[in-house]
Nucleic acid binder design. Structure first.
Lengths: 119, 119
DNA sequence: GCTATTGGTTTCTTTTAAGAAACCACATTT
DNA sequence: AAATGTGGTTTCTTAAAAGAAACCAATAGC
């Protein structure tokens, strides 16, 4: 019976499916992946620089997403004791490991657009 | 000035960023990627089979997501004139091109878990 | 004393995603 | 006649994500 097969298959790859869910949770949302890409492209940036580069993001969303990315060790937050105080954000080594995934997202998206337009 | 540099950089890769957004829109949500993975693992499946394999999805969500995936040519919907009527869902050739991306999501997620647990 | 800059926080509102439950047409089985 | 299986739709409710606007502390410049 097919349903049993499904259950068996699902049972065999719980870890893999959880891994996919984990990744999706981390990168999904309207701004998170764009924040990462912006930092990858520009290197170290300050809060207001990011806000302007991301054109349209609310300060609340930016600080919220930055905190989330920091908790997950994808970006680094460094407070500079200047006057007024400035804060520098940059990608961590672990964050940089997202580049393959981001390339894949990009390549697939470009190809998908062709596929959808074609027909 | 740094802000100008950012604007220039952003200007140079509008297409790429749009491609990333496109892909994210297509795969984000709680169930869509799981539907694709389930169909990749099991081949052709009927509505009720999918519903049971996805353990917990509401019929409304399943039919909504299936329609969305079909519109984007990732899955194929085939009505079989049996009694009672049955409907078969399967991945299209284009949908199958998601496998690299899915592997990348999985690999990154597995590695991320190690990274987070480690420290 | 007034205004601007920096990096936020707080509060409130709107939009979007998701879930639960009931319903439906059609056909078969009991 | 009633129940069952199939593939949904409809309606209502809840939860989560996102946006807008006001506010704030510290400091500097005018």
């Amino acid at each position: 019976m097919k349903l049993d097969d499904n259950l068996v298959l699902s049972g065999q790859c719980v870890q893999q499916i959880l891994a996919i869910k984990d990744t999706m949770e981390l990168i999904s949302g309207k701004w998170k992946i764009l924040i990462v890409v912006t930092l990858l492209l520009n290197g170290t940036m300050r809060f207001m620089e990011l806000k302007k580069a991301l054109n349209g993001i609310a300060a609340k969303k930016l600080s919220y997403d930055l905190r989330n990315l920091e908790i997950n060790k994808l970006i680094d937050r460094k407070v500079i004791k200047s006057k007024p105080i400035t804060v520098e954000y940059s990608i961590t080594a672990h964050g940089r490991t997202l580049d393959n995934l981001i390339s894949e997202l990009m390549d697939w998206g470009l190809n998908h657009r062709k596929e959808i337009i074609r027909n």
